[in-house]
Write a protein that binds this DNA or RNA. Structure first.
Lengths: 195, 195
DNA sequence: GGCATGATGTCAGTGACCGACGTCAGTCGC
DNA sequence: GCGACTGACGTCGGTCACTGACATCATGCC
């Protein structure tokens, strides 16, 4: 017999999601979440630096998926090709079965500005990590930042669509990235001769 | 003789910046900022919805600059061309004289994760607004989002460089955008034939 | 002169978050 | 098999961001 049930953080996250979904984020107290699993508010904040973090902790795995995708890219790949590989790897992190869960989670975030801020911050952190990985492969700093941020943008837009449509995230990501390349080519043709 | 000095919000912002710069953001209380200009904490929160907002209020003008740049773009311009125009307009919002002020402000933000979150949120809001404006000009939704986010990315990177280098923001923005287009072309050549 | 107005002050409260300290079941060295 | 140690938790007290309700009072309009 163990003294404490394992997976405390996970149980807190599950309870939080349910409470947020029914009562609303702001109407739910950190102490209430803790009580729901038989713990104290203080313990809640030992597992999550923030009340918001209860909805975001665990994204290191997504970041790792991006990093794995980068590693999987061939050595001669251009920055955006590497990013494309990372996007593919990240897509496998969201199989279609996960859609319902992601939807309720997202609906909570969409209703609270503070949570949206955190979500965007995580995306930016992701972009920074990706940029670092690109630079480690020898990509120039500016190119690394641009490619990484573009990847984050594509991922963000694709993820939003994945929640609505029924297609796979991988397909959607590819389409969104292709559209970005199209836009850029179009602009390059118009902007370059002007110089 | 007026009962209250005008420009209350501005005075609060100035006092806040000084206190944050010397004492640090977290070590400065909203009540202290208010006291510094002879007001009450309650009044502070009547002018700013947030403690953080004291550093960000006023950015509607930057958004407006982007919007003006969009309006100034010719009707036949492609989405990213319109964005380029918006970037040019936004650049004039940051003349070189403003660099010192921007630098101290940014150093405060860079030292506090919460402020970084807010900054990124503002950038995203800007991108959303730009995307709406693009759509109002008839740009397809996906293209509008991508172009707007790319613009925000370019602006963010260019702004960071502008704080360090001594070149004009306009020049830097143009360079960063050009690099993005280069990256995209490079990737398009590699990715497209693969299909 | 009286009255509406708007910016402010006062007060009392809630909830997020933190530091310090105590508790206690399991683990490890001997 | 005992005592020191550790790690996850509880308790307590406090700070500070933020809010609603209500009072105040110069200004300007009628």
């Amino acid at each position: 017999m163990v003294r404490w049930e394992p997976g405390t953080a996970e149980r807190l996250q599950k309870a939080a999601l349910e409470l947020f979904a029914t009562r609303g984020y702001e109407q739910t107290t950190a102490a209430e979440i803790a009580q729901a699993v038989g713990l104290t508010e203080r313990t809640f904040f030992r597992h999550f630096s923030d009340k918001r973090e209860v909805l975001f902790q665990g994204q290191e795995l997504l970041v790792q998926a991006f990093l794995d995708g980068i590693d999987a890219a061939p050595a001669e790949a251009s920055p955006l090709e590497i990013v494309a590989s990372a996007l593919g790897s990240a897509a496998s992190f969201f199989p279609d079965e996960r859609r319902p869960h992601s939807r309720t989670r997202q609906s909570i975030i969409d209703r609270n500005p503070g949570l949206q801020e955190r979500e965007q911050h995580k995306l930016t952190t992701l972009a920074t990590t990706v940029a670092d990985a690109l630079r480690a492969r020898g990509v120039d700093e500016l190119a690394a930042k641009l490619a990484a941020e573009s990847g984050a943008t594509v991922f963000g837009i694709a993820f939003t669509r994945w929640l609505r449509e029924e297609r796979s995230l991988d397909d959607i990501s590819a389409d969104v990235l292709a559209e970005l390349l199209l836009l850029a080519e179009e602009a390059a043709q118009a902007l370059r001769p002007t110089r």
